[in-house]
């Protein structure tokens, strides 16, 4: 109990059932160590190195890099996404194991940002992938990136970071949106077997 801070202790006192305590504890452990897959798509890639290195030292908060998608908990999409990139990002995301989260940096994934009239970048990332936390800014500085991670940790602790479940439940919607921009060059089926084995229509 000594490692718990005030906020944690206050939350614990409010829990009623034993199962709620177990859930709370699982979430508490999950949020302590977040392995990040930094997918440097746009200009935000330059903000990741200072975030994880000595000056801002994200590892203080349990955030560190992961080598492969399969070992990562969170994918950080830093900046605008071209259509070609988005296809790779979706494949990467579908390879990750649950629990998995998405953090989008910058205004471009939110509403297109300064590339709103570009022919080749997507305008709203959350139409194609379930985004848990978006950090606004152009580009957000490492402090803001860390703030985003803190927000994600809060969300995990509250049990609300359910992007992966949302993706699974609303896969029709997401795949339809993806098909709108990929056309007949959709992702190959094996990237999400769990969907296609159920007789998906793509």
């Amino acid at each position: 109990m000594d490692n718990l801070n005030k906020k944690d202790k206050a939350q614990l006192k409010e829990l009623k059932s034993p199962m709620a305590v177990v859930d709370w504890a699982v979430n508490w452990f999950r949020k302590q160590s977040i392995f990040m897959l930094a997918y440097g798509t746009g200009c935000g890639a330059i903000e990741i190195p200072p975030t994880v290195t000595a000056r801002y030292d994200a590892e203080r908060f349990g955030v560190r890099g992961a080598a492969t998608p399969r070992q990562a908990d969170v994918i950080v999409l830093s900046g605008y996404l071209a259509v070609k990139t988005l296809k790779r990002v979706i494949r990467t995301y579908e390879q990750m194991q649950e629990p998995k989260y998405v953090i989008a940096l910058g205004s471009c994934p939110i509403n297109g940002g300064m590339y709103w009239d570009s022919y080749n970048t997507i305008k709203q990332l959350d139409r194609y992938l379930p985004v848990d936390v978006t950090v606004a800014g152009c580009m957000p500085r490492p402090e803001a990136v860390l703030e985003g991670f803190m927000a994600l940790k809060d969300k995990i602790q509250r049990g609300e970071a359910e992007g992966a479940r949302d993706y699974r439940d609303n896969i029709e919607k997401y795949k339809n949106n993806q098909k709108e921009i990929f056309g007949d060059k959709m992702l190959p089926g094996y990237t999400c077997d769990w969907y296609f084995s159920d007789g998906g229509s793509f």
């Binding site: 939110i110 509403n111 297109g112 709103w116 009239d117 570009s118 022919y119 997507i122 305008k123 709203q124 139409r127 709108e180 921009i181």
Partner: peptide, 13 residues
């Protein structure tokens, strides 16, 4: 016409 293309192909927020 890039703006027209965006209006046709993407959904703006």
């Amino acid at each position: 016409d890039t703006v027209q293309f965006v209006k046709d192909h993407y959904k703006l927020r």
